[in-house]
Write a protein that binds this DNA or RNA. Structure first.
Lengths: 245, 245
DNA sequence: TAAAGCAACTTGTACAAACAAGCGAGACCA
DNA sequence: TGGTCTCGCTTGTTTGTACAAGTTGCTTTA
């Protein structure tokens, strides 16, 4: 592990442990540098990690301040329903309801960076959390990954993990659009809610390490089952609000 | 403006302009350094900005890749409905429907880091976008800022801006929980939708520069009016998914 | 022909030094 | 008393250097 990651970990633990309560000041860079016997730049890099996690606030001239003390979960959760579920102590399940190929629509072609009409693989999955159906996933896979997807077990728990083990594919980057929609007839039936009841919708496009789009998906969560949590600050944010589209 | 910010801006413009199309490689650090006549460290800092914005993907050993070409909007939007609206070319409006003091509930006390029962100011606002009601804000302000809030114009367009101008308060940090809920009777009446129709809910807690909680709020958007957009990557993320709470 | 391995290239980590810029508290002055 | 000013402290920016580690394509080898 890198030196700065180690220092970041120590500081994070200290904050979570309560050594640095919320609202109090963190030690200065100089002090941390001497304590960890590292250069100031290395300490800055470590603290930057905590700032990015939203645990620490920083502004020029003033000592840094502890903002939170909850461990923020790592990325994979956002793409892997199963891994997220496990990390919060729940059991994920999945079931493929439909899987077929068809020509891509123009909008899908744009999102997947392919030529319109090129064949894609459409998969509809119902996801459960501790047995309860909570999520309908309608995913469109680009043609080049379709064969590997079709080979997956229909009841496969973690698509992300299986694809990584099978072909070394990593879902490295994602763009997400989040809004609320009313449940359609199929949504309602699958999730066991009334038609028109609120669902949390997440439309995402996922990209491989090399920047190649892999899939785009329309995921709908039953209201009350899942909450997205985001931290932001005036310096460095990754969240944007957009007009409906 | 700092040197690295300038370089980041130049690169961002070049990407948006299409000089570096999506999926292509960015110039190497060495080349950028010589082009901008800056040290490698400075270039790295510049690129880090774009990586944080989700425009560029990076991994050790390989050239950096352009992932997106849309300008990501700056932070203020997330707290300031008005400034966000203006930036996307719409006109924001606001109207205070109710404003009164009452003792804080235990949960509010925790979120605002005050003693339970301490008085808070509750404000209900209806927000419009180009005349259309799109958002009901139910905000709870900590006592220490309440006087300044009460002095605001009830039809005030940007609370954020007014409070900054009045008392120099900056909404520096925020934590946000996003989910979907059904419209209650009051929500439905105010937003002009049917009871039970889907709303996008954003519960937030906002903190001042000094790390002092200022307000917590329950904001509900009419479905279709607003979409949250998030970019993430395996390295460095700020988004977390949580079980319903 | 296909796998293994090497070599050049590129990004990541770490250290050191110097100056810039913002903050906060105490000193000073009206 | 109340405001202003200055000075020390702390974080932000920039440069330079050296080495570590991952990627990629080419070469070598079986």
């Amino acid at each position: 592990m890198a030196r700065y990651e180690h220092i970041a970990g120590e500081l994070r633990d200290a904050i979570i442990r309560g050594d640095h309560p919320i609202g109090t000041q963190l030690p200065t860079e100089a002090e941390l540098a001497s304590r960890f016997n590292a250069a100031r730049g290395t300490v800055r890099q470590a603290v930057a990690v905590l700032v990015a996690e939203g645990l620490v606030g920083t502004r020029q001239g003033a000592r840094r301040i502890v903002l939170g003390s909850e461990r923020s979960q790592s990325f994979a959760e956002l793409h892997s329903f199963a891994q997220w579920a496990r990390s919060v102590g729940h059991q994920a399940g999945g079931l493929v309801l439909d899987s077929h190929r068809r020509p891509s629509t123009p909008s899908e072609a744009v999102r997947l960076a392919i030529t319109p009409g090129e064949e894609v693989l459409v998969v509809v999955r119902l996801r459960r959390l501790d047995g309860e159906p909570v999520l309908v996933e309608r995913t469109v896979y680009a043609n080049w990954i379709a064969p590997a997807v079709e080979k997956l077990d229909p009841a496969c728990e973690s698509v992300t993990q299986e694809l990584y083990e099978a072909v070394g594919l990593v879902f490295a980057y994602g763009e997400h659009l989040i809004d609320a929609v009313a449940a359609g007839a199929e949504d309602a039936r699958l999730l066991g809610v009334r038609r028109g009841s609120p669902l949390l919708r997440q439309r995402r496009t996922t990209t491989s390490q090399e920047g190649r789009p892999v899939e785009c998906s329309d995921d709908r969560y039953r209201a009350g089952s899942v909450t997205f949590s985001i931290r932001n600050s005036t310096t460095a944010n990754s969240l944007v609000r957009r007009a409906g589209d």
